[in-house]
Structure formats: C-alpha cells, structure tokens
C-alpha cells in the first residue's frame, strides 16, 4: 500500500495552494490516485480559490491574445495519457513506466528545449541529437538516462540555454547546453556551484551544443552558474554569470 505517511492527507491545503516542493507534490499526487476523500477536498479547494481569483480579474491586453493564438498555430494538443501533474519544471522520469529509449528521448527533448509538457516531438532531430550527445559524452548520457534523473532548464542572457540534469542516486549533475554563443578567443566557459554564501568551481562547458558532468557537487548548492573566464579557468568567478540554473529540490 501507498501509506508513506499517515498524515499525508494534511497536505491537501498546501497542494491546492501550490506550496509543495516538486518531490512532495509528486508524492501527494500518487496519494490522490488512491484517496477519494483528498480528491474531493482538492477539487473543492480549487473551486474556492477560483472564486477568490475571479474577484481580482483583469483584462489582459488585446495583443496578448493574438500572440497566444500565434503560439498555438503549429501545435496539436497532446493525446490524453496519464494523470501526471499538468506542469512540472522538474520532470522526474519513472523507470518501468517508460522504456529506456523513450526516457532518453524525453530527456533529450527537454535538453533541446522541446517542452515535454507542450509542443511536438521532433523525433528525427532528437534521434540525431541523442546520437551526437551520446558520442560526445557517454558520461552525460549515464546521468541523462538515470532512473531518477531530474531536469531544470534556463535561458542564457547571451542566447541559447542550459539544462541541468541531476541524478540523486548517482550524486551526479550534468550540464547540457544548446545554442550557446561560441566561446570567445582566449576564454573559457566555466561552471560553478552556487551555495548559500559560497561559489565553487564545477567544471567547464563548450559553446554550442555540449554536455559535461560537473565535479564536486556541494550539498548546499542552490544553483549552478556559468561565467566567461580566461582560458584555463579561475579559482573564483571574475565576471557575472550569463547562465544561472536553479537546482530543483529533491
């Protein structure tokens, strides 16, 4: 039975308010599958909040509607599949529910900025990309395909994006970049773990599309950052990060 915690029922309020960490939310959603009482409660809480929300309604600007409609023109709704949470920045892949290949593609999709939640599968491109990534960095692939891999993505201020994949079981964190500007001559892109009050070196990453497994993951790290440093790297960052990715809570 799924009786992780006798008072998991008390999480219904925090769940309705979106006040759970991703891991807690996933656990509560598993509980919801089995607990009709909590499902009813969550439903009624959602309705109560909707009433509150309506009282502060405000018309968005007209042009926003146009840009939303433009945004969906090339998108077909996904087929119904699961009861998974409708939205997760952090995607926990579940072994046993999807085959490993699918999992790898799903991770690569996120890596390449194809939102798992939204948009289409660009399978051919993904396949290419997966082969490229695997060839380039077998280590990264190990992290990518770990059963407990978690993902977080952020956009670089200088264009392109970075995706951090972490696997608590292996203690490893990988950074995969996509579309970063080429590294300036004589420089390098250095990665850092940012803790509460400390910044420690975590490795290097190339421009363009690249992947690397980071080193020395401190327990208190809340984010990773990437800076431009003189070739060879620096003991501490000498410039502001152009890419910062928050580490998802376990």
């Amino acid at each position: 039975m799924n009786d992780e915690n006798a008072d998991i029922h008390t999480l219904s309020g925090a769940y309705a308010l979106d006040a759970l960490e991703p891991g807690e939310r996933a656990a509560f959603e598993r509980h919801l599958e089995a607990c009709e009482q909590c499902r009813d409660e969550v439903r009624s809480f959602g309705d109560a909040l909707s009433v509150v929300v309506d009282e502060s309604a405000q018309e968005p600007p007209e042009r926003l509607r146009d840009s939303v409609l433009a945004g969906i023109t090339a998108v077909r709704p996904l087929p119904p599949v699961t009861h998974d949470s409708p939205d997760d920045v952090v995607v926990a892949l579940r072994p046993g529910r999807r085959r490993a290949v699918t999992a790898a593609l799903a991770v690569a999709a996120a890596v390449l900025g194809v939102a798992l939640a939204g948009t289409a599968w660009r399978t051919v491109t993904l396949q290419d990309e997966v082969s490229r990534l695997s060839a380039a960095a077998a280590d990264v692939t190990t992290v990518l395909t770990a059963p407990d891999a978690r993902i977080a993505t952020a956009t670089a201020t200088t264009g392109g994006r970075g995706t951090m994949v972490m696997s608590p079981s292996s203690g490893q964190v990988a950074l995969v970049t996509d579309g970063l500007a080429p590294v300036p001559a004589g420089k390098t892109y250095q990665v850092w773990f940012v803790g509460r009050g400390s910044v420690v070196p975590a490795g290097f990453v190339d421009g363009g599309t690249a992947g690397t497994v980071l080193t020395g993951h401190p327990d208190d790290a809340v984010a990773i950052g990437v800076t431009v440093e003189p070739r060879g790297g620096s003991p501490a960052p000498t410039s502001d990060p152009f890419l910062t990715i928050a580490i998802p809570a376990a």
Binding site: R43, G46, S50, I72, V81, P86, A117, G118, T119
Partner: peptide, 18 residues
C-alpha cells in the same frame, strides 16, 4: 500557461476538477 493549456487539453479530466 495558455499554450500549455492548449497542448495539454487532452489530459483534462472533468471528474477531477472544474
């Protein structure tokens, strides 16, 4: 959010929420 609502509309289950 609305782009996501469109693409995930197939996952909406009216027995779960309004």
């Amino acid at each position: 959010a609305f782009e996501q609502i469109w693409s995930q509309s197939g996952r909406y289950d009216r027995s779960r929420s309004s």
